[in-house]
Design a protein around this nucleic acid. Structure first.
Lengths: 236, 236
DNA sequence: TCTGGTGTTTGCGTTAGCGCAAAACGGAAC
DNA sequence: GTTCCGTTTTGCGCTAACGCAAACACCAGA
């Protein structure tokens, strides 16, 4: 069993208020694993045998309808937990998790959760905080889907990705994992066609530069304007 | 300060695993209050000084955009908690809570939460469960908004309301609090006009019976069918 | 009984965005 | 260098749903 370096994870919100010794004990229950790009970490509907902490890479959590349509629930960035089915009392994973880049994760058996929480109550409090924040974000997303049009939603989605997982360039911000038009469509509740049209438009205005699974925001400030306008002026 | 009867709330999920004595202690920290129909319990953006447990009545939690549009986050049924801003570490309420019917609530000062959690860790675990469930429901709603058309979403919304707050009739189920077309529109991401058209259509098919802020599902089973069909057959 | 206000219904023109289809593009593997 | 496959782009017709506007129903209070 590989030893995990506590100093790498000690500062994470999940472990706030946990002593170094306790952290050590918690980490002893975990194992680490590597998932190559495009591999599944767990599938929606499978027994929730583990929960995860992402160390490196990026993970997409997606939910599928009975008829096969998908939406992206969120992108997991390093330092975040995912697969917390046990926290909500679910027996199965409510979504599928795919590594969109080569990724390294810590894995705890779900069965260890009750014991850990009992010994280290701040874990529960911290997790509550995390889940609460996600709930808020979720509500914000619903609000946007209800009140904004597609272009604004795409703008918001890209800005969020840039903030969460953006790599600063000389001029602009690049989203530092592979992401397709289809992915963005599934984040914003539209189709890949519409996303493609929007990005083409932005590209011709010099707002973004994009290619195959790759997006660079060249003019973040002007994209913010797009995200916030209510429903008016077109192009000059 | 009015004494709250422990037997009324002991069975609630929030208090699972809490001993009667502990429950007594927890309730001593709370006061109760009555809110008349259509009164505000708290406003979005206000300091989160309290959190709440609904004893009687019904409460609508709604979120407003900077430009004034609203969505209904959820309807709170008796036995449920709301206003849990502290759980997610928020300083202000992220939504507005309105009593849609004369309502009675228990109120704890937000400042009491850390102490309560420390003394009774199962409160945190139970709340985590609740928030987790809401997060799931939220994701389901996003999925529906992304993949289904308006009529199906309205069908789902009404079925959920019927399940959560339905009063069984000889023939059908009545939603037992006042709810307008506008409210349903704000739950499903559409306009009151579209909701009105849909309900008119259903009414002429005998699926529902409705009036001013009042809806009765006469044929729940046939509404389930509407909610589940993917995108095909019209009326005969 | 009348009157005002809030919620509801309905008609009608408009359109944002979908759905289908076809072509172009770009990487990776050989 | 060539081939192959997944992604992206773009055109075109269509329609679900919106937005506006006007009429209507219902309840409460004077």
């Amino acid at each position: 069993m590989a030893k995990v370096d506590t100093s790498l994870v000690a500062h994470l919100p999940l472990f706030a208020g946990v002593t170094p010794e306790a952290l050590d004990e918690i980490l002893r229950e975990a194992r680490s694993a590597r998932y190559p790009r495009n591999s599944a970490i767990f599938e929606q509907g499978a027994d929730a045998q583990s929960f995860f902490l992402l160390l490196h890479g990026h993970v997409r959590a997606a939910k599928t309808t009975p008829t096969g349509e998908q939406i992206v629930v969120r992108y997991v960035a390093p330092g975040e937990t995912f697969g917390l089915a046990m926290a909500i009392g679910a027996v199965q994973y409510p979504a599928t998790a795919i590594a969109v880049d080569d990724s390294v994760v810590l894995i705890w058996p779900t069965s260890a959760w009750p014991r850990l929480v009992e010994r280290f109550p701040s874990l529960a409090a911290n997790t509550l905080q995390t889940v609460g924040t996600r709930l808020q974000e979720s509500h914000t997303r619903i609000l946007e889907m209800s009140t904004q049009q597609v272009e604004q939603r795409v703008a918001h989605a890209l800005l969020r990705l840039a903030k969460q997982s953006g790599r600063k360039l000389d001029h602009g911000i690049e989203i530092d994992f592979p992401i397709s038009r289809q992915d963005i469509a599934q984040m914003t509740g539209t189709t890949l066609h519409t996303v493609s049209r929007i990005l083409s438009g932005w590209e011709s205005q010099g707002l973004v530069e994009s290619g195959r699974q790759r997006i660079i925001l060249r003019e973040p400030h002007r994209i913010v304007v797009l995200a916030e306008r209510s429903a008016d002026s077109g192009a000059a």
